[in-house]
Write a protein that binds this DNA or RNA. Structure first.
Length: 270
DNA sequence: AGGTTGACCTGGACGC
DNA sequence: TGCGTCCAGGTCAACC
């Protein structure tokens, strides 16, 4: 799915079209993408004005003018697309927010790993860790020191840091020269600082490229991102490492996820 | 309690 | 062409 840079790109393209707009009505095609499903979503949304659209981790959070909030999670294949009412509706369109001015926001998700969750007026949500951009290295160090899991598994844990996924964890660990199997609590201060810098660098560059479009991802305007061209290991198994040019990128499974490493740049822990 | 595994879904790519 | 298998950007619940 969309990870932090893809979600950020969706939010940036979505916001100018949504902010301040009123939801004239709602079309619900599949109730099971909603949490909780028994809530009267159309009534809660209809006639409300969208005050704000923001990203939190991989979530797209909508704030309404009555201080209620809900978020969209894109899962693996979810899309949030702006469209005119007369544009043909693609398959797997589950929810439509009709805005004034004849535009609509469409939630489309073939695999339905994504969904829409009602937050209400709740302020705090402990299910997500801090944002990685702007996270001080010392705080990252403190969080990683608390677990013996492989550093890749730790970084994928949204409670530890919110927004990283399979692509950018592999890319950041490669850039930092850290093997994904390294136990998180065995990284010294120097390597943590390298990792912290690499995470931010990789995410910022991917955001600037508009995200990475592997197969499904497009922003809210339907535009694919150019971030794949920046990948140094992800999706490059069997090809030469672009950094050292001495080894080929290898792929193995860690935490049930395809994991890409250069064994020359990233030395396996003893 | 922390950590690992299967389950949830569909579609596209590949091999026979 | 058609069928089977594997794989995919994520997250839960259920288990050790």
């Amino acid at each position: 799915m969309p990870e932090l840079p893809e979600v950020e790109s969706v939010v940036r393209t979505l916001r100018p079209h949504c902010q301040g707009r009123r939801v004239s009505h709602v079309t619900l095609r599949r109730r099971d993408v909603l949490t909780p499903p028994e809530l009267d979503w159309p009534s809660l949304l209809q006639h409300r004005r969208i005050a704000d659209v923001r990203r939190r981790g991989k979530r797209i959070v909508f704030s309404l003018d009555d201080a209620n909030r809900f978020f969209v999670h894109l899962g693996m294949t979810g899309r949030l697309l702006l469209a005119d009412a007369d544009t043909p509706e693609p398959p797997h369109t589950h929810l439509l927010l009709h805005l004034d001015a004849g535009r609509q926001v469409r939630f489309i998700d073939p695999r339905r790993f994504g969904g829409v969750t009602w937050l209400g007026r709740r302020v705090r949500d402990a299910s997500l860790g801090p944002e990685p951009l702007g996270l001080p290295p010392g705080e990252l160090a403190r969080r990683l020191a608390g677990t013996r899991r492989a550093v890749k598994a730790a970084l994928l844990d949204q409670k530890l840091v919110a927004g990283l996924g399979n692509i950018y964890v592999d890319e950041a660990l490669h850039r930092a020269g850290i093997h994904p199997l390294t136990p998180a609590d065995r990284l010294d201060g120097h390597r943590i600082r390298k990792l912290s810098r690499a995470v931010k660098y990789v995410l910022r560059r991917a955001i600037a490229a508009g995200g990475s479009s592997i197969r499904d991802y497009v922003d809210a305007d339907g535009v694919a991102g150019a971030g794949v061209a920046l990948h140094r290991v992800y999706g490059r198994a069997g090809q030469p490492c672009l950094t050292c040019r001495r080894a080929t990128v290898e792929k193995f499974v860690l935490a049930q996820r395809g994991t890409h490493v250069c064994t020359n740049c990233q030395r396996q822990p003893a």
